[in-house]
Amino acid sequence: MIEADSTNETLLSVRNLVKKFQVGKSVVQAVSDVSFDVRRGRTTGIVGESGSGKTTIGRCIMRLVEPTEGEAIFEGEDLFKASGKRLRALRKRLQFIFQDPYSSLNPKMKVADIIGEAIDTHRIAKGAARRQMIGDLLERVGLDRDHDRRFPHEFSGGQRQRIGIARALAVQPDLIVADEPISALDVSVQAQILNLLQSLQNELGLTTVFISHDLTVVEYLCDDVVVLYLGRVMESGRAEDIYGNPRHPYTRALLSSSPLPDPERRRERIVLKGDIPSPISPPSGCVFRTRCPDAIEACAAVVPPIEEVGSNHVVACIRHRELPAWSPARNLMKETP
């Protein structure tokens, strides 16, 4: 697990998180013994393929789904044990940005009521002060103040996501969980929303858990990265270490498939064989071994422990010491005409 940096206070510490779902007669373990820290004022990226458990982790943190085991220590208090009035009070400090801006806004409510709902629930402002606050929030996310009189169907997807961001900011939260907030948007709009999130991070000092399947997006926005595969942490650390010195074969494979800004260069691609296994019947030992280009027989027998490989940099791979050095610079090739 990543320990808190001496210069950054840990706001949220997730430890040994397990989430199981009952699917018919089978039990699906969507998240298996996941631990990581979220440092105040920084953005922590949780990245992995579809089915890796990243959205489930975000929803467990928010208590939108109930965790099976583990703890989430938020400023000394376990979120997973809170209930009743205490849970409602904590939810004021934790906000969620949903993946789909079309279904996450009530179509029967005007924007003023969508944003104002949380303000009213937590008794933050009334009357003129409430209207002023809603207008300020709309302007902060790049919309006009008079947009508060419109309904969601009158906006584009990107504008709806801006409304969702304004709603999350309305209660001045300590932590925001953003679940793939650009994946449902047109490519031309995605960069605008990323730039908005980056700007808000810089202006407000937000602490964010950013969930994504795209390592390129995570590299742009995140300070720390947790790489997941089939509900387990494969590697985690500071972004500069994950991108500059990846130690897990899965991280290297994800990076090798990321596009480069230089059209004349491409990465040496690491192709993963097969599909991600079913969480109903995961592989023995290392869950990544069935697709790993570096797997050996022992990988089927041993669940790799989390090992520290640098300051705040950990990896779960029994072969990480044997793998050749890897860096983005040495894995670039010129495009052949």
Rank of each mutant, 00 (worst) to 15 (best):
R91F: 11
Y250S: 08
Q172R: 05
I119N: 03
A329I: 13
S50F: 07
D186Q: 08
R88P: 01
H313N: 06
P277Y: 04
R91Y: 07
D5S: 15
P304C: 11
L90C: 04
K273A: 12
R131M: 12
P261V: 01
P305F: 07
L272E: 09
T56N: 04
N16L: 00
A325S: 13
L323R: 13
R167C: 07
E219F: 01
L200S: 04
E219A: 14
I114T: 10
S183C: 10
R145Y: 02
A301S: 15
E335I: 15
Q95L: 11
R88Y: 12
I163D: 02
T121W: 00
A178H: 01
G274V: 09
F80A: 06
C286L: 12
L12C: 06
I46L: 15
P181W: 06
P101L: 05
A118I: 14
L169Q: 01
F288Y: 12
I318N: 05
H213C: 03
A112G: 00
F80L: 06
T290S: 14
D113Q: 05
S32M: 05
R150V: 00
R266T: 09
P101Q: 10
G274P: 09
A170N: 02
H153T: 06
D37W: 07
S32P: 00
A295K: 13
A178G: 04
V217T: 15
E268F: 12
R252I: 15
G58I: 01
A295W: 09
L206F: 00
M333Q: 13
N8S: 13
Y229R: 04
A239M: 10
C286T: 09
R130V: 03
L215V: 05
S50M: 08
Q22R: 15
F36C: 06
Q190A: 07
T7D: 14
T121V: 15
L137W: 06
D224L: 10
T336A: 08
T7P: 00
V18H: 15
G51E: 09
I57H: 14
T121R: 04
M109N: 07
I57L: 13
V209L: 05
A184E: 08
K25G: 12
H320G: 06
E139D: 10
L137D: 03
P67I: 08
A295S: 13
R86P: 00
S199I: 01
K81G: 02
E3D: 13
A178W: 04
D186A: 05
L175E: 04
V287R: 11
G41T: 07
R130M: 11
T208P: 00
G84T: 09
A72T: 05
G244S: 12
R130N: 10
C222A: 12
N331P: 02
G58W: 08
H320L: 09
L185M: 04
L272K: 11
A89H: 13
A253Q: 10
V303L: 03
G244D: 08
